[in-house]
Simulated assay, not measured.
Amino acid sequence: MKTTLLSVLAAGALAIGLAAPANAEKLVIGTEGAYPPFNFVQTDGTIAGFDVDIGLALCKQIGAECTVVAQDWDGIIPGLLAKKYDMIIASMFITEERKKQVDFSAPYYKAAMTHVVPKDSAITEFTPEALKGKVIGAQSGTTQAEYIQATYPDADIRLYPTQDEVNLDLASGRIDLQGGDMLPMLDWTTKSADGACCKLAGEPITDPKFVGEGVGIAVRKEDGDLRERLNKALDEIRANGTYKTINDKYFPIDVYTMK
């Protein structure tokens, strides 16, 4: 992902619109645009991915006209609070720390994290003792970063602005392993040329302290009505098959249930 392109999008360029009646409610979705297959920028500059498709489906269900903008991850909650957009749909884990700033919808998919190592790595244990002195990467401002910092105090922790940059350094051999969100890491290691270097390792990381209650849509605390409408719409797209159609476009399992 080119940083210059993301910077332009982060400045507020509208990337995707959803057709709706002229008098429809207008809402803006904020996402990162650098977290495939959940949100990413296509060659034509538009933002796509599972998060985006789910968001637009929910907008359609509540009768709103929605546009999507990209925002760098570190500023994504401040951007919501500053009213640059009305909701965040960006694979954000629901955690107690984030609940202090924003409210969340019900989870729209479950969450787990994972370790990722080169395919020829000798690392087979993921205890603090086994990883002492190892170079571990993660995206800054994420629960993955919080996890590796808390779990591996004697490792050399390196944090990056985007997940793409973590992946690049792992593929290039500049770090020994990384902590990542399981589904994007599964996608990267099995579907991309650079990700062929690497594999998921160890047991899934499901500690609620770090992965929370799942992945939700963040809204401002004063926007309880919007949150409840999104919750109702989520139930509806699960029931009418829309969710499954979007899910199957990206994943071989139902990410809502992880089965």
Rank of each mutant, 00 (worst) to 15 (best):
A171G: 11
D187L: 02
D194S: 13
A218V: 13
Q178E: 15
K232C: 10
T151S: 10
A201Q: 12
Y250W: 03
R158M: 05
M182L: 14
G202T: 09
K191E: 13
A239I: 09
I175V: 13
I217Q: 08
E222R: 14
I217W: 01
A171P: 13
K232G: 09
D181F: 07
L183F: 00
P153M: 09
P252M: 06
E228K: 12
N247F: 01
A150I: 09
T142I: 00
L226N: 03
K244V: 10
R229Q: 05
P208Q: 05
D181S: 08
I217C: 03
T190P: 04
D223Y: 15
G212F: 02
Y147R: 09
A233P: 00
D169Y: 09
A145Y: 01
D248N: 09
F251R: 04
R229P: 01
L200M: 04
K249P: 08
G173K: 03
V215T: 13
T143N: 13
V215Q: 14
G180Q: 02
G141P: 04
E222I: 15
T151N: 00
P204R: 01
I157F: 12
G141I: 04
Y152F: 15
T151R: 10
I246R: 05
K191H: 07
R227H: 10
G202Q: 02
A233V: 10
A196G: 14
G173R: 06
D235N: 06
T162K: 08
A193H: 10
A193Q: 12
L183R: 04
A155E: 04
I205N: 03
P252Q: 07
V215E: 09
A155I: 06
D235H: 12
K232H: 07
T242G: 06
D235K: 14
T143Q: 14
K232P: 00
